[in-house]
Structure formats: C-alpha cells, structure tokens
Computed example of a mutant assay.
Amino acid sequence: MNEELIDYVYSQVSMKEGKKVIENILLDIYFKPGISTKEIARKTLLPLPLVSAIKKELIKVGLIEQKRGVNCTARGSRFAEQVMGFGDLDHDLYQRLKYEQWQPDELKDMMTKLESVFEGRPQVDVTIDQSSCTLATSMNRAVLALRHEALIGRDIVCLGDDDLVSVSLAFLLKQLYRNDASKSNTRIYVFEIDKRITSYVNYLAETEDLPIVCYEMDFREQLPSEFLNRFDCVFTDPPYTQQGMSLFVSRGIQLLKRDVGLPIFLSFAHKSPDFTLAMQREFANMGLLVTSVLPRFNEYIGAEIIGNTSQMIVLQSTEETHESIEREYRQALYTGEVKRTVRLYECKRCNRVTEVGFQMEWQTIEHLKKEGCPGCRYETFELIQKKNA
C-alpha cells in the first residue's frame, strides 16, 4: 500500500496508537459520509481531541472535508478505492460481515465449493502437532481479519497452514470482489514446514486464481531476511506447548512491520490457569497487547485431546514489541518432544503389545494403524498403558 499520505498525517499528530488508526478513521468516513467527529471517536475508542487533530491533518492533505459532517473528498475516495483497495468491493456484503449482520446463506455457494477443497487437504501429521480445523472455523478466522481491518489491501502471512486459512482468506476476497481477488490489493503468504501443504495450497492458488504464495520453511531456523518487517497481519496455530507458542509468535513479530496496532491471530488450546498465566507473562515480555480472547472459537476434526476446540487470542503490536526467540531454535518444540510419553497398544487380534512414542519406530497410533500390527498386520488396537519415557 502506498502509505506516503498516511505517513505524513501520522508524523503531524502526536499519537502512540499507530498509523492503522488513521487508515481506519479514513475508512469510517468513506463508508459513512457525513459522519460526526464524535461518532468517529466512539467507533475508534479514541479521545475526541485526538480524532479532531487527525481530522485536521486529513483535511490539510485533501483527503476529507468538513461539510455537513465529515466526508471524503474526491481525492480521499480515490485513495480509499485505488490505493487501499476498496474500489471494486461489494460494500453491502463487507458491511454486513464487519458488523455481524450477515446470514450463512449469503456465502452458501462459496462454502459449498470449499467443502471439496477442505476434504482434499493432506492427512494431518500429529508428530508436528497438526490438527484439522473445520471449514467453518477457517472461514470465521478470515471474517475475523475483515473485522479487524486486516484483510483488504494487506500483506498477510500464515505461519503454518494445515487449516487452509490462506485459502479461506482468498475465497472470501473473491466473494467480496466478484470473483477477482486481485482487486483487493491483498497478498497472502504461507510459510509451512510440510511440503504436502505447500504443494496443495500452490495447486489451489493456481487453479482458483488466488493471491497466495507458499514457501517451505522450518521456524526453528532463522527467517530469510527478505521477509522481515514486511507484513500487516499474522495468523498462526502453533504447537500447543509453551515453547511452540513462544517460537511461532516470535517469528510472527519478526515478520510484522515495525508499527503499532498490527494483529497476530493466535489459535491456541485452552490451558490450565498456571499455563495461561505463564503464556500471558510471555506476551507481556514480548511487548504484545492482548486485545481479546475468544474461547471455543476454533473447532477441529478428531482432536479429542483438546476437546476438539481451542481459543482465539488476538494480539496487537506496541512500541515495545520484540521477539523472545531471535535466532535458530534447537530445543524441544512439539508436544511429543516436550512430553515424552510412551503408550502401549495391544493388537485386538493377536494381543501383541507395541510401544508408540517419540523417536520410536511408531511415533503415533495413526502411523501404527496405517502399517498394521507388526505381528499380524491387523489395524485395530487398544491402549493398555501410558507412561513417561
């Protein structure tokens, strides 16, 4: 996005809320001509004097005017439409989605098409803590980005994407832009360790004309320098360990632009009070603001160990935001590495007992079922014992 005008306005106003606030004010005026200064203050939760100061600078650069309320000038409308990407948007649908006034039937055709897309995604690899969220959850994450003004005209990165959030984001853009997501000025990147996922998303991007680019990447390594400080928004659903959360959020911070108010949408399991407190301390140590916690926001298929649900934690960057893990990471990360549990499974046919666990021949029960019992190749087992490695 060409941000020269916004940068200039930001430089003229004494504020710590970030440039995104100025963009949001301009959009509020664009979508509601004649809006009052007081209503802008209520919508943005900003002090009235600060809104007045921002309004004054936007008038100076010719983007808005005070005339029977606050309105965009012709230049301001062009800026919102051409530079920010709101020109060819289905305004009515956008407003209904933003203010939760939409009906599921409005997206029925899109969701029907996505059903086959989600059914075709690769099987989860539990050794790297993958779990498949439902299609509805993936789309709800995309709508959440829209409500946070983090969808249109943004550079978005998904750190891991076995949930196909990138695809839901792109399909929602196609719906909003009458089948041409490129008009949104949005670019979506996927960084993923599993080449099956990157191959599948790349295939979808090509066949469905989606603004998505994928890179195979292991977050335990340092990120390529060309991607640092480039993005407006981060999505991640990391391993549900303290180490996994810290590493993935740290990588997200490194990828975000150095600005205040940029969101990280973190999906994470519901945890004990002690774990949650430690997690919140880590957020504070990294200079991140927790703006909302949405319990049971995410639903998963076959993830009984977490009750098939997890929470959505919306984090926001501040002037003090910094990563807690800067360079490569060489410690335990995934659940199987952190919690060295060995499970004993008994074959239902021949009663042979097989050990399953980290760094063993069979690391997961899914792997054992796929290969079959070492004694008779039967595929049904009973868990008879669980012990620490």
Rank of each mutant, 00 (worst) to 15 (best):
K387H: 09
V167I: 15
G375F: 09
I152F: 02
A278K: 15
G357F: 04
Y203M: 11
S52W: 03
Y10F: 13
Y300P: 01
F275Q: 03
K183A: 12
S324C: 04
F275E: 06
F191C: 04
H367A: 12
P49C: 09
A205E: 00
Y94W: 10
L210N: 02
T134V: 08
F275T: 14
Q175K: 15
R220Y: 06
L146Q: 04
S77M: 14
G375Y: 05
Q254D: 08
F219K: 08
L50E: 04
G87L: 08
E323P: 06
L333V: 11
C373Q: 09
A284R: 13
M286C: 09
Q316Y: 02
G85I: 07
S168A: 15
M139I: 11
P239C: 07
K108T: 01
F227V: 12
I193L: 15
R68L: 04
K174Q: 14
K113Y: 05
E192W: 07
R154P: 04
K38D: 12
K19G: 10
A145V: 05
H148E: 11
Y203L: 13
F265M: 06
S199Y: 02
I59F: 05
E346S: 12
A150F: 10
E361Q: 14
E346F: 05
Y30R: 09
G69R: 07
A278I: 01
G160Y: 07
Q82E: 15
S310M: 10
A142S: 14
I313V: 15
C347P: 05
I301T: 08
Q130G: 00
R349H: 12
E319F: 02
F265G: 01
E3R: 15
A278W: 00
T112E: 14
C350D: 13
R141L: 05
V51Y: 03
F86R: 05
L26C: 07
G252Y: 02
E221T: 06
E206N: 10
I40V: 15
K108A: 13
E326F: 03
E366V: 05
A332H: 09
V9K: 03
G87C: 13
H91R: 14
Y378M: 01
T44Y: 02
Q331C: 08
V356M: 03
Q243F: 05
